[in-house]
Nucleic acid binder design. Structure first.
Lengths: 346, 346
DNA sequence: GTTAGCACTCTTCGAATGAGAGTGCTAAAT
DNA sequence: ATTTAGCACTCTCATTCGAAGAGTGCTAAC
């Protein structure tokens, strides 16, 4: 089913149907299009065009004598070629700017604020994929000895974000030694990923035949443990919003959706893809491989620090969603977050 | 409406009605009680007793010719005097023990693991109120200089829990100075609350007329900032489980409930009360002041470190919940968590 | 190419109906 | 004095039916 050339009229009517359906939530008939959008044309004419659009696969009827509803393909065409992207209102923009102003620089808080403001303004669910340790470059690393073999690693990213992690070693290292190690690591750290730091240490150890240098061995162990066992973390906000949608009045569907949100691993997978892709993406219903997303759409965009892509943010709503506005919202938010994380001198 | 003396038969029948209603979810009639529980008595007899129980206010009828349903008061009587508390099965106990074994000692992870296992075993929603900084006593405090006036405070509680917080000062303090301050604080810290530490510093400053001692002034500022602006944090898990309950098939109710969960502040309030109370509590429907809890019950118990009450954990489900089993579950989990947090030498 | 007209289909809603469950009451039985 | 059987009554729930309404596809006329 490749892309068809559509006549101007076909495009106009497809657009009209989608708009009406998005606002009303009910199958739209030829009559109402004729009235609201194309008063010059009669319902019958519109009907013919709609029949064509159905044949191409852009529209469908829930049952024989109902109006038309856009298909996933229809939405896709709309998003790709019909839709124009409005600007957000000044009010909304400043609302977002106010909403995402982390007092602390803690990654966690920032993520949570972002989901809050996104879900609030969209009235749908918001998702944010947090930056991974492996993806960031770091300004600073510190170790705090907690108890026995247990150590808290504090990482300050170039983006200004702070992340922590507790690791458990095989040996006890006391605080002064930890300080020495962090001093050393900090000298090697400048602007590269932790993975890279690790590689450099290995290289240096080999080169210097310095295998018994306690400090470096330990530095290696610490960075290994820090990177170990990391999986994408997703923050979700406003999931309840989706329940307000009339199309999910059916309880069975609702259950499914909430199930999907609690089973975060799948969500991580799909967001990871967006991350790899690099730009704003719209994923409509069945385009997603996730079963539970069949009736949902995802609008997501990566955010960066400088040129480094860190994570992804977006919103999840019904397929019948105001794509234009939502794309604008997600895009703006992603840019804003990127700016915050790029101007590291906060 | 004070407590009535109930005859043995009345108690038995009330108990039977509640049990049947809890398992079936449907109003229970005199017939079925006669069949399943009191084959010696006829339905008519049971009917008379039920009419009495209704008059007292322990049962009610959804409509004239339906079976009976327990009222909040009925449940209350059941929980207080009729119910006996079963033990969990060995399997379940070990499941919980496996489930709550924090690798890291980070407060956040521990809370999350607890909600996960609680919601999983109960099949309802789980809530955990995290320990507050003001309530714990601390083994150790550290400061990590992040950037400019921004400092990460790392607190290690006597319970072994690690909590962090970023604070922003009015002046820049470099790392060596921070280390000096934390060394000082750590000497004063032993086994008292942060609030108390603060008081001691103030006392000492007064006593020594030592107002210009930079170190102490700064130590004071740091502890103040650390305590500042703290509000109870609630972790929620398995909220979707509630959606599976037939009594919430009604979409309106469901919306309400999810709304309640996202509006965490109210939940904090009610959990705070449990915390003040000190023991395991069951709050049934309208007994709670929260509107959205009208159709829900909360079973919650505080957890401690030693004799210090730290927070509260519990589950939220429909009023029609297996109180006996759930009480056992919550009680066991709270004890376990308390043990973990008490044996500080993890 | 466009439109009016019309028969047809399908959903939705309300009313009517009957079955079923459960009650309360009375009078008889224990 | 309890307990029970019997019965009329009430209320819900599922089903059926029919009418109304919305929308379509097709045909024939403009």
């Amino acid at each position: 089913m490749h892309t068809h050339e559509l006549s101007l009229r076909q495009r106009q009517i497809l657009k009209a149907v989608i708009h009406d359906y998005i606002t009303s939530g009910e199958p739209v008939g030829s009559r109402s299009i004729s009235r609201r959008h194309h008063s010059s044309l009669s319902a019958a004419t519109i009907r013919n065009v709609m029949a064509d659009l159905e044949e191409i696969g852009y529209l469908s009827q829930p049952h024989t004598s109902a109006g038309r509803v856009p298909t996933d393909l229809g939405y896709r065409f709309y998003v790709d070629t019909l839709m124009h992207r409005p600007r957000l209102s000044k009010v909304e923009e400043s609302r977002i700017e106010q909403g995402i102003r982390p007092s602390s620089g803690q990654a966690e808080e920032l993520m949570q604020e972002t989901t809050r403001i996104l879900s609030h303004l969209s009235r749908y669910a918001a998702v944010v994929l947090a930056p991974k340790l492996t993806q960031s470059t770091w300004r600073r690393i510190d170790f705090v000895h907690l108890h026995r073999e247990r150590i808290l690693v504090v990482l300050v990213a170039d983006s200004g974000l702070v992340q922590q992690k507790v690791i458990v070693l095989d040996e006890v290292i006391d605080q002064p030694e930890l300080d020495r190690i962090s001093r050393y690591l900090n000298t090697v750290l400048a602007g590269v990923s932790l993975q890279e730091v690790r590689n450099r240490i290995v290289a240096r150890m080999a080169e210097e035949r310095d295998e018994f240098n306690e400090l470096m061995r330990r530095a290696l162990e610490l960075s290994d443990k820090t990177l170990e066992g990391e999986e994408g973390q997703v923050y979700i906000g406003g999931a309840a919003n989706i329940a307000h949608q009339p199309e999910f009045a059916d309880v069975k569907k609702m259950k499914e959706i909430f199930g999907a949100f609690e089973e975060k691993s799948k969500l991580v997978k799909i967001l990871d893809e967006c991350l790899a892709q690099g730009g704003l993406r719209v994923i409509i219903g069945r385009e997603s491989e996730i079963r539970e997303m069949r009736e949902l759409s995802l609008i997501a965009s990566p955010y960066k620090s400088g040129d480094h892509v860190l994570g992804v943010l977006g919103i999840v709503g019904p397929k019948r969603i105001a794509y234009d506005r939502m794309v604008a919202l997600v895009d703006f938010t992603a840019r804003l977050l990127s700016n915050i994380l790029t101007e590291a001198d906060a």
